[in-house]
Every structure is written in structure tokens, then in C-alpha cells.
């Protein structure tokens, strides 16, 4: 069953066409890695999928899902790193939809937040200060927050940026587990191309238009894949 189908999508961003005529379909339980060089339209694609940018033509269709029901994990900003908030307070900001119009958090909302902290193995951090956590722990907390607003689809923007190798592996393992065991569809943008491609079941290679979309095994043996993965070390550590 298709969770997401994108048809002939074009998006104009900042006056130029950042994505041209893109089409692909994601099935329930897929783990998609979006790759491409800087300026290839990866971020624009994410923003459009989340409903933050309007397509100039074409359409995006979700099955039984509105764009506000996607679990989104954006890149960390400088403001967040030493933000004075407890982990619980951070995770609860992902539960506002579930809480409705009530100005205070209901008991069920708090339980939802705790449940999702447990899913990412961070329940023991609930009372800690967010700013005092390690990079890997902070990403787990942000993943828990994303899980609060979704049952089905996670969109992750550079989840392992600035993490040390151990934390990177742990986070990849966690994402794979959510995908495998809980059948959550994952879309991930990453600069850590070689690892990310190995994690994912499908790859979408973007350079304003679609260069490749299909299974990871096929991508690795394809021309685009050979070129891109071969150049991996000079692409790592780039900006957005």
C-alpha cells in the first residue's frame, strides 16, 4: 500500500526551480534515503512534503495522513543546544496536536510523551535538562518528540550530523528498529552517504530532477551510485 505518492512535482524556491518534475511512490514500511549534492533540492523536497512550501505544479498524496501527522526531526539549531528546558518539556512540544486546544497538558498527553521516550530508550532522561545532554542523547529526545506526532511516517533531516561514530551507530540502529519492528515508514536526508545508503531499503538520488529511485542494492551497482558513493569522502562534512 502506498503511504506517499508524488506525481510530477515541481517547486519554485527563492525564485528558481529547485525541484523539477519529480515522481516517486513510497510503500508502507519503506526506509528511504534521499541523497544529492548541496543545492540539489533535498531540503526543498522535505519542506514541500511537510507542507511548509507549496508545489508550483504536480501533487503530493498521503494515504490516510495529513502533513501535520508526519513525525519531523529537523536539524538542531544553535538556540537549542543550551536551551533551558527539561527533556519532558521538549518532548511535550511534539504533543500539542494530541492535546488539542487545552492550555494545559492532560494526563494522557504526558503518558504519550513518556511512552515515546521509552521507545527511544531515553525514559531515564525525562527529568534531565536538555542542554546538559550529549549530542546523541539530544537526538534521541528529538526523535521521541517526532514520534509523538506520528503513527506512520518519520522525516529525518541530517539526524547524525555532528555526532561521534558511536552515537551515530546507535541512532541508526534505533531508526532501523523503529522501521523494522514498528513498521514506521522513514524518509531520511543525510550527508553521511555511505552509512545512510546501507541503512535504507530505498534510495532517491536528486539533482533538481530525479537521477535514481529504487532499491538500495540496485543503486549501489548503478552508474549514479558508483559515481556518488565513490566520491563519498569529499562530500562528507558539507553544509546543508
Amino acid at each position: 500500500m502506498a503511504v506517499l505518492s508524488v506525481k510530477n512535482l515541481s517547486v519554485v524556491y527563492d525564485g528558481f526551480e529547485a525541484i523539477q518534475d519529480l515522481s516517486f511512490t513510497l510503500e508502507d514500511g519503506d526506509y528511504l534515503c534521499v541523497v544529492g549534492e548541496n543545492g540539489s533540492g533535498k531540503s526543498t523536497l522535505m519542506k514541500t512534503l511537510l507542507g511548509l512550501l507549496k508545489p508550483s505544479s504536480g501533487e503530493i498524496k498521503y494515504d490516510n495522513l495529513s502533513s501535520a501527522q508526519i513525525g519531523y526531526m529537523p536539524q538542531q539549531t544553535a538556540i537549542q543546544r543550551d536551551f533551558p528546558a527539561s527533556v519532558m518539556e521538549v518532548v511535550l512540544t511534539g504533543c500539542l496536536k494530541a492535546n488539542g486546544a487545552c492550555p494545559f497538558f492532560k494526563r494522557s498527553t504526558r503518558e504519550l510523551a513518556l511512552k515515546n521516550l521509552e521507545r527511544v530508550g531515553a525514559l531515564s532522561l525525562a527529568k534531565k535538562c536538555y542542554g546538559e545532554l550529549s549530542g546523541g542523547q539530544q537526538q534521541r529526545v528529538l526523535l521521541a518528540r517526532a514520534l509523538c506526532s506520528t503513527q506512520k511516517l518519520l522525516i529525518l533531516d541530517e539526524p547524525v550530523a555532528n555526532l561521534d561514530p558511536k552515537a551515530t551507530n546507535e541512532l541508526y540502529e534505533l531508526i532501523s528498529k523503529l522501521n523494522r519492528e514498528e513498521k514506521i515508514t522513514v524518509i531520511m536526508v543525510s550527508h553521511d552517504i555511505r552509512c545512510a545508503v546501507l541503512q535504507a531499503s530505498k534510495v532517491l538520488h536528486l539533482d533538481k530532477t530525479l537521477l535514481f529511485f529504487g532499491k538500495t542494492e540496485d543503486y549501489i551497482s548503478s552508474d549514479e551510485g558508483q559515481k556518488f558513493l565513490g566520491h563519498e569522502h569529499c562530500l562528507c562534512g558539507g553544509g546543508n
Binding site: 502533513s67 512540544t93 496536536k97 492550555p103 517526532a146 506526532s149
Partner: peptide, 23 residues
């Protein structure tokens, strides 16, 4: 401030996440 406290916290902490969840 009291009525919108939670939403203001969400927007202060992470504007792009808040926008994506429909705030």
C-alpha cells in the same frame, strides 16, 4: 501568555518543527 504558554514554548524551542506540526 498563560493560554498560549505551551505553543510559545514550542515556537521558541524549534520554529521549523512547530510549523511542520501545524502550529
Amino acid at each position: 501568555f498563560v493560554v498560549f504558554y505551551n505553543r510559545l514554548l514550542a515556537v521558541t524551542f524549534d520554529e521549523s518543527f512547530a510549523k511542520a506540526t501545524g502550529i
